[in-house]
Each structure stands twice: as C-alpha cells, then as structure tokens.
Design a protein around this nucleic acid. Sequence first.
DNA 1: TTGTAAGCGTTATCAG
DNA 2: CTGATAACGCTTACAA
Lengths: 375, 375
Amino acid sequence: MATIRDVARAAGVSIATVSRVYADSPAVSEESTRRVLSAGARLDYWPNAAARSLTTSRTGALGVLLPDIHGEFFSEVIRGIDQAACTESFQVIVSGSHAHADALVSMGRSLRGRVDGLIVMAPDEACTPAIAQLARSFPIVLLNCSASCDSCDSISIANFEGAHTLVRHLLSLGHRRIAIILGPAGNVDAEDRRQGYRAALREAGIEPDSALEFAGDFSESSGYVAADALLRHASGVDAVFATNDCMAIGLLSALQDRGTHVPTDVALAGFDDIAVARYLNPPLTTVRVDAFQLGQRAVSLWLAHRQDRSVERGPVREVLPVRLVVRGSCGWRPSAGVGKADSLRERAVPARSRAGVVPFGAAGDQPLSSGMPAP
Amino acid sequence: MATIRDVARAAGVSIATVSRVYADSPAVSEESTRRVLSAGARLDYWPNAAARSLTTSRTGALGVLLPDIHGEFFSEVIRGIDQAACTESFQVIVSGSHAHADALVSMGRSLRGRVDGLIVMAPDEACTPAIAQLARSFPIVLLNCSASCDSCDSISIANFEGAHTLVRHLLSLGHRRIAIILGPAGNVDAEDRRQGYRAALREAGIEPDSALEFAGDFSESSGYVAADALLRHASGVDAVFATNDCMAIGLLSALQDRGTHVPTDVALAGFDDIAVARYLNPPLTTVRVDAFQLGQRAVSLWLAHRQDRSVERGPVREVLPVRLVVRGSCGWRPSAGVGKADSLRERAVPARSRAGVVPFGAAGDQPLSSGMPAP
DNA sequence: TTGTAAGCGTTATCAG
DNA sequence: CTGATAACGCTTACAA
C-alpha cells in the first residue's frame, strides 16, 4: 500500500505538500496539486486513517453502543444514526449486545482512539455507573437511557405522554376497566409508560388498580403468557394497554386462540407502531415512535455538543414526541370518534384504493421498506 | 487521557513493559504486571487503538458496506455480522446507502487504516468495477453480490432453488397460469428468482409466458402497482409469485382493494419470509431466507480467508440454503397437501394453542424479537 | 525479565 | 508556496 512518501517521491515534492493536497489546504500551487493528485491516483494512494487520527487526535468516527440490535426498532435507530453521521462525514461503529455494565465499559475502552464519541443506549438502570465512567473518556449522548449522567446530553421518547394519550383515547371510547401489561423491571421506558397510564386513569377519576397491572418483559411471548392471567382476572376488563407492540401481538394471538374477540370482547392497544402493527387483524391501535428520527437527533445532539464544547452549559435533554395511531383494535369507528388533536386516524378505506398508485396514502403510514429493499 | 508513558512512570517501569502487560505478553514478572495494572487502573489507561494499529498494521475492525440499511432483512444481516464479529473480538463499522459505484469506492478509501477487511453488498451489477478496485486494498467478502470478483470469496442466497421449489409447490396445488412480479433490472437476486421460476414451469411442461412476467422493483408500491397490469391481463392467472415479500404485501393490498380474494380468486406467494409475512391475511406462503445467518457466514468466510491468506486457493463461493414456508396464501390446506421434503408447513391451528405457553410453536417460526426488544 | 530505540504514516510547526 | 523535522502513542527487535 502506497504511503505519503511514495507519492511525494513520484510527484517530486515533499511529503508536506502531499499532505496539504489531501487535506485541501489552500496554499498549494496548481502545478503541485496536479502532480500530487496524478501520482496519488496512479499509486492508488489515500491517507491512512489511523496515522491521521494519531496526529490530529480526531477519528471522524462515532461509536454506537446498543443493548441488542434485534428487531425493527433498533434497526431504524441505527439507520437514523448512520444517515445523520454520513451527511457529516462520520463513520459509524456499531456494537450490540451490551446489556451488562461490564461489557459497556470494556467496549468503550477498546474504542479509545477509534471514535470521537459515543451514543449509548442502556435501558437498564444498573448501567448508570458504567456510563458515568465512559463519560470521562468520551463525549456521550444517551439514547433513551435510564441513566441520567450530569455531563451527558440525552434524548428520549415521550413515553409518559404517549401512554397518557393512548389511555385517554381508550377512556374516550367508553372503556373503564383498563389493564396494562408492564415492561421489564428497571426499564425506564416501561416505567414511564406505566406512569402515563396511571395518570390518565386518575384524571378520569379512576383509581389505578394494581390487580390490573400484569407482568411482562417487552417480549412477544410475555404478551402471550399474560393472556392467561388476564382472562383469569377477567372480571370486566374491557381494554388492555400492552406497553409495547411485541407484547400486544403475543397477547392478540393468545386471545384469539382462546376465542376472545378483539375489539368486541376486549380492546387492545400497543406502543411503538412497528411495521407489523397495521397488518394485524384487527390492525393495532398504538403509539408511533419515530425510531429513525430518534437516531438522527442523537447524532445532531452529539454534533452540537462537540461544537460548543468550550461553552459551559448544563446537559441538554431532548424528548422525542410520539403520536397516537388509531386503528381497529380498540373498537374505534369513523362515526363514533371523538375529536382529538394529536391522534392520527387511518381511514377505514385506505387512501390507496382511491389514489390507485400510492400504497400508503393513509397519512403517517410508511412503507415497510423504501429505496432498495431486501432482496 | 493517560498514555503509555504516564503509566510507565507511575508504575516505575519502561513503556515496553507496560506494552507487554496490555498485550498479554508472557515474559513479564508478576510484580511488574501487578504494578502496571494498578497504575493503569488508577490512570484509567487503555492502549490507543489508532496508535496500536499504526504499528501493527492490524485494526481489529471489519467494514460493512451495504446499499441501504432499510428494512428487516438488512437489520438481520447486520445483527448476524455484529454477533459473529463480536465473538472474534472484531469491531464492526457499518455504512449504508452505497448504491453508486463511486460512493462504494470513496467509502472504501476512507476506511483505509481503519479496517482489516470489508464485507460488501452491492446487488447492482454496475458496481462490479468498483468492487474490483476495492479488492486491491482489502480482503473482501461479497455478500449476495452480482459482482463476482476473481479474488473475492462470496456468499449468496439460493435464489434459484427457492423460486424453483416455490413454483413447484404452486404447481402441485394445481395452479397452472402462474404470473411473476420481477425485481429491479440488473439485480442478480431478482434475476435468479426469475430463472428458478421459469425452470420449474418448463419442468412441468409449461412454456414460460413473458406476458405473465410483470415489472417490479422489490418495493411495496411496485407490488401495489403491478396489480392493475395483472388484473387487466387476468385471463386465467391462478397464482402470482412476487419475487419478494414487500411486493407481495403491496399486491395483496391492491387485490383486496379491488375485491379479489386471496387465495380463492388467486394464489399469492412471496420470497424472504420477513416478520410481517405470517401476520398477513391470509398468512403469506413464502421462501425463508435466514438473513442473520447470512451475516454470520459472511464473517466466517472473511475470517477463514484471512487465516490462510498465504495459501493459494481459488475464491470460495458459498450459497445459503432457503426453505419453503407454506401458509395460507396459496390455498394449501392440511388435507390437500402433497408430501414434500423441503417444505415447511405451518399448521392451520398453530401449536401454541395447544402448548399454551410457547407463542411460536409452529416449527420454524421465530418471534418478532427476542431478548430485549424495542422499548 | 527489562529497557532502549527505531519505526508505523500522518499532521503541524517553523523556517526558508 | 514549499520543505525539514518533530511529534502523535504504541509495538517490537535488539541489547543488556
């Protein structure tokens, strides 16, 4: 592999000049530039990133630490990060499977000298000290983390508001006994959604009944399992709020297996609006989280942070808004609806059947995949 | 940030000793090791990756170039890559959006000194020269690429076999006039699927009719649009093979909007078995591609390649097998089935309703998300 | 077992 | 505008 010296020799200039040319430094004569570029192209030369970052102490890369890169949600987050990083000419180094605090720290270590900063997602509260440790070595943006570290910017989802809005919607449809399937213990998203649920009930004059709060862990199977407990307890439950869509899907399967009809016998709602949600039968009413944007914003936050690193300022905490998506699983029908600013209703007859071309005319719906999809 | 010199000073040893300790070099006394480690921990030291890779000319990182990281398929590929790389202590640098040959080359350039090799996915034939160029700088594994470069190992999907098996299945159900929705022009996956389709027809004594081959580009909307052409041409089409699931979904929507019932009026099948497929109504018969494993195998191939770099050998070409997944969209019913070794049938009454706990007892079905799913 | 010193491929400083 | 040359932080012969 050709080095800067080879090019310098071939072009008949010094290595400094070659360096200047490849750094777009202004003070190089046209003649030199031409000769360097020509020699560089001939030798297939390009500056070595490691050497460059050793002297500049900038890497042009951004590390991303995730607990697990399973499922659509994470894939969208990564896509958002990559897209935003790419437009700023940053490379992205991803790493999944960092549920443990130890893994988090050792991963961060091995990234030293390799990235200019980190975007960390660690929904488990146990990771807080690990993150604090990492924050001493890198500028960090926390993505939807329970850990709130003093020096870190963070971005999170409007979990409370989303759950609150969703439950109010259920109430507006006349549901009274509303159960909830909880997320994993210690998960801050899950907890915030629970709080939103409780708050909405209280505002409606209903005291939250802990007997209506069922265990879950965000997995599809936990939703399936919850059905038994739910039906055992069935004394008049008229709606269920599963704190994420995966559990809603599991629950839906279980209910159908047991001959319980949704939404006639019981209404069902989820959270996240993953791609499958609108294909379920009935289509799932849920809360849309724009995971792509979440990733994008995390990068923006990080870039902003490093811009005014000098300026002394408190940590920025951004909250990504969410949106209620009303579909059929809660019994809502066009004629029966109650006006609601922040809700998005998909028409019973989707716009596509009229437009004839646009498959996802129903406002807010996105195709499963755009651009070049899976082969 | 502490350097090796700081640690050496604090531990009262030379930098060489510190280096040896952090490289797990054997010839260091216990006493020195202890002091170095203690000083290192106190100073929060860890070797700088850039400096290290500059001297060793190894980076411990693997670059991944994808055309677009949209959709479940790619997310699973990345997950497979990350998982496999992680167990071998390799970092993964991903980069999406490289449809153009130019972007591919410039991306590869900027990765120089940053990665030890590349996994490249570029389904467009126009990228072949760009890949050849990259291959001069890096050991490369081609992922499902049209470009077959002499010096590159590659892994791809059994597109031909999958399509062939699927169409045979359709034939076995009595379908005769079988249409196909094609993928993007120049996409090798799409083309291979078409060939598999044609071959199966010919073997059944049916001459492929190009009037039954409809344009598409793997996007959901192209599937939707194809419905019109299809119905216009409807002279007895009894089955449609959409060359990927996204198009099948679009097509299904369109057919339902037009009052055409699947599978009664027309059978429908897809390719990929993305997560949504089994939630459609009717559940989609399709061909399962294990994207996770595809990613894993790509890494294995790459690791093997770099192991015996010295050994002279031709390029390894691996093909990932696929599997027919029979659901309801083609009119198959348990009683009517014809025995078939490589087909996987999901029971009309899923196993879960019997097991009572396992949500996806139906063999081969996977949950949407395991582990820690989307919040 | 340990230390010294020569790189690794760049960039940055400072004269010319 | 250009060219020496000293870092950057680490590994690795080679010596001791």
